[in-house]
Amino acid sequence: MRVDEQLSDEDLIRRACDGDTAGFQALVERWLPRMHRWVLGMLDDPDEAEDVVQEVLVRLYLKLGAFRGEARFSTWLYQLTRNAARDARRRTRRRERRMAPLRGDELAAPARNPAAELERHEDVTRVRHAMAALPERQREVFDLVEFQGYAPTEVAALLNLSPGTTRAHLFRARRAVRAAVLGADAPATEARP
């Protein structure tokens, strides 16, 4: 059964809560691309991202009844996604700590990222390293605007931040990442917001 694409998120949520499988599926179809991009931005690992997306969907199914519409659905879902990504990161760190004493250089896993070829590109590697060094909020704002096409005002709503704070995070993150990309060619940075 195809659920009407004109239905609002709230309608789909209501249907899903009433046990309508098609309602839940339509909600997933609508939000999956965005959710997947969010997770990729948070983890930068496509394999792990897919697992996290699956976990977010399980949590979504279990918690859908708790969505009261006090926040935007996008903000609520983003928070759910963020928590699942954080849990995954924590698990990965624990696993890496456990594995560290056992792992010699010859056992180091090959790059799992299918974009490994592109990653060799020096500037992309610099982007990754610079982003990894950013505070979490700055990294989130930067990734959403720069790589996922959100407007800063949309990001502010999604992350529950003021527009001014969002712009300040974006400014600092851009300056740090682009200065890293340009290396010696970057000008000395001026202290602005």
């Binding site: 997947h36 496509p46 897919e50 974009a115 500037d123 992309v124 610099r126 982007v127």
Partner: peptide, 23 residues
């Protein structure tokens, strides 16, 4: 150029379809 590479990575769809993931 560096931004476009990362943008392309973000745009890569999940391997499994939405219906299968939802089920």
């Amino acid at each position: 150029a560096a931004a476009r590479v990362v943008q392309a990575e973000r745009d890569r769809p999940p391997r499994r379809a939405a219906g299968a993931l939802a089920e």
